[in-house]
């Protein structure tokens, strides 16, 4: 089973990505795209297990804002390491929409993004499978001080020092 980092621990990942519509749905916890969610909402709502949604960089959190209560997980895809749109998506989900369940970074996710991703509200990381997930855990200790407010610490340094 694939390992991921969640809440700073390495765990087994039990979610399955459903890439196209199926009837009946496969069993287990399913992650679907925004498009699939929107086109098969009723079927997915009747699923016996938990549902998660996958945001691509171009998906705005506003597109799923009304349905957030239905999702146990929001995965945000990073097709490329250097595409930073997902950072804003996570931050918006946490600070504007107050989504408080799992936000998971998937795709081209390396140790080097994790520190800032965590500050934007990601709490789970599907580190690229060819990289050492144990090493990636060290990223949380990259810095001990931050200047800005973020999704975790609501006050910037100048409000706390």
């Amino acid at each position: 089973m694939r390992k991921i980092i969640k809440d700073k621990k390495i765990i087994d990942d039990s979610w399955v990505v459903l890439t196209e519509a199926q009837d009946p749905l496969p069993s287990g916890k399913l992650i679907v795209s925004v498009a699939l969610w929107q086109s098969h909402k009723e079927q997915l709502l009747s699923h016996s297990d938990e549902i998660g949604v996958l945001l691509e960089p171009e998906n705005e959190p506003a597109e799923i804002a009304d349905d957030l209560a239905q999702f146990s997980l929001i995965a945000i895809n990073f097709p490329k390491f250097a595409d930073g749109r997902g950072y804003s998506s996570a931050r918006e989900l946490r600070t504007r929409h107050h989504y408080n369940k799992e936000i998971r970074a998937v795709g081209d996710v390396l140790r080097d993004q994790i520190y800032l991703m965590a500050r934007c509200g990601f709490n789970a990381f599907a580190v690229r499978e060819d990289r050492c997930i144990n090493d990636a855990l060290n990223a949380f200790n990259d810095f001990s001080v931050n200047y800005q407010a973020d999704a975790v610490e609501q006050r910037p340094l100048y409000q706390t020092r």
Binding site: F81, D83, Y87, Q113, L116, M117, C120, Q148
Partner: peptide
Amino acid sequence: RQWSTFHPEFALLG
């Protein structure tokens, strides 16, 4: 400078 240094959201802009 301080606000923009390691701003978590804006490290990988377009």
